[in-house]
Structure formats: structure tokens, C-alpha cells
Amino acid sequence: MESIIKVTHLTKVFKEVTAVNDLSFTVQQGDVYGFLGQNGAGKSTTIRMLLTLITPTEGDIEIFGYNLLRHRKEILRNTGAVIERPDLYKYLTAYETLELFAKMSGIRVSRQSLMEQLEMVGLAQRAGSKVRTYSQGMKQRLGLAVALVHNPQLIILDEPTNGLDPQGIADIRNLILMLSQKLQKTVLVSSHLLSEIEQIANRMLIIDRGSKLVEGTVSELFSPDDTVIYIETTDNNAAAQLLRSGEYSSSIITMEASGIELKLRKDQIPALTRLLVESKTDILGISARHSLEDYFLKITTANQHVEPFKN
């Protein structure tokens, strides 16, 4: 499969701060590539280097097989981007905005084509309204339309769901899926929310403090059959002893007075609950935890986080 983005030993140093450190990754054609990391991990800096907003201190970026700095114009002609907030000209209408950026991309588009773009992001009805009257979600969708107006092959989205309500997040997610599946675009999307990325990405990269932690397909990083559950019973000590002595001993992650955390396959859960009930252990609650979320938190600078509150 053809590489669309090939980043090799990319480093960016701001004075004494190394924002990105020897980062290498490859995005294949047709990928929805999730770019994950905590806030401040170096995602936005990397994306800004991919879009020539920032010059790398070291390393190479190839997009469509060409060196980015030497073939900037040709590459950007085939790339669309939304960078963090959807900041647009508040005094222009959605239609004027789209027309302006189409011209800036060096293409002539018909009114019908522009209206189709706005239709695609659900803004055709508000095409004549000034951007200042738009909600955050509408601005984000318009930003996406701007990124797509010149029909690019590669789309780079930096935290596209930031500040959106659940409906806005769902809208953006559906648009990304549509771009990938219907229009066969290659999408690189960054987020600090794993739950967002895992629903749309087929491959992902997790970075922390500017360096790569893991890269691979979602199934490589996490078996979808595995899950983490948290059990609370009337006697957690007795329940823990029971589980430790049987087939679940290797599944136990933590045992605390307040409850027991286990990692196991989903099909093991009914047998587990039966075992506890048959041993006269009253179950107060079973809650599922996302193991990928745990995995993400575990590998990304766990010592920098505030411990979860437990009473």
C-alpha cells in the first residue's frame, strides 16, 4: 500500500523545550490514522510541521512521496486541514468563506459545487448567514468544508471535536467516517480522547512528551474482546480470595477494600457472576471499564495525573 505521509526522525526544539523528539511514523493511503496523546504531548506541533506552519529542527517529512519543504505548494494543493479551533472570518457568510478558500486553493468552483459542499456538512440552509452567528459545532463543520473545498486526497484534523457538545462530536465523527469510506480520503486525526479515535481510526499512534510510544492497528494495540470490569460486593475480601484461588487469578488487576478490578474476555463475565452468586457473595455492582482507555492512561505519563478520587 502506498505511503501518504512518511515522517522520519522528526524533532522540534523551542528554545530549551523539545516538543517533538525523534518521531517517525507512516500513514498509508486510505487510513484513518489516529494521532493520540495527552495535552502537550506534541501532537499539534507535529501537525503544524506537516502543514508547514512550523519548521522542523531535524528530520524529514514526505507527503505523497515528495519532500514537504521542497514541494510545499504541490503537497498543500492536495491537502486539507482543520487546526484546533475552527477560526474563520466572522464577518463573512459560510458561502463567502468557502468561495474565498476555494480561490486561495487555486481552484474555480461553481455555486452549485459550493452549495453541495455546504450540504455535505449540513450547512446549506445557513449558507447566507454570517459565521459570527454560528454555534461552535457549525463552525467546526464549516471548517471541515473549507478543508475539503479543493477536494484534497489527504485531510489533517487537529483535535476536531474540541469544545463540541455530544451531537457535534457525533457529527464530526460521522463526517470523518464518510470521508474515509465514501470518498476514500486518507485522514490523519489527532485527539487526546481515545474514545473518539477508537471509533473511527483503523491505525493509531500514541505519543507522549514528543516521543512515540506505540503505533499499530487498533486490533494490534487492543483485543476488542477484552474488557476491564470493576466488581463491588458486600464482602470484597472474601470475593477476592475466591477469585484468586480459581481460574480468574490471572485476571485480577487490583484488589481493594472498595472493589476488585479484573481484565477478562466478555464471555467470561456470566460465569464469574454465577461463581460469586453461588458462593453467596452479594454483588452490589459490576461496571465495565475500557481497557484501551486504561492502556492509554497507563502508557502516557501515568505519574503526571491526579489520582482518581475514591471514598
Partner: peptide, 8 residues
């Protein structure tokens, strides 16, 4: 930043 990401 949006302007700079255009092919100009």
C-alpha cells in the same frame, strides 16, 4: 494558520 496551509 489556515492561510498558510493553502498552496501559496
Amino acid at each position: 494558520r489556515l492561510l498558510i496551509t493553502k498552496p501559496i
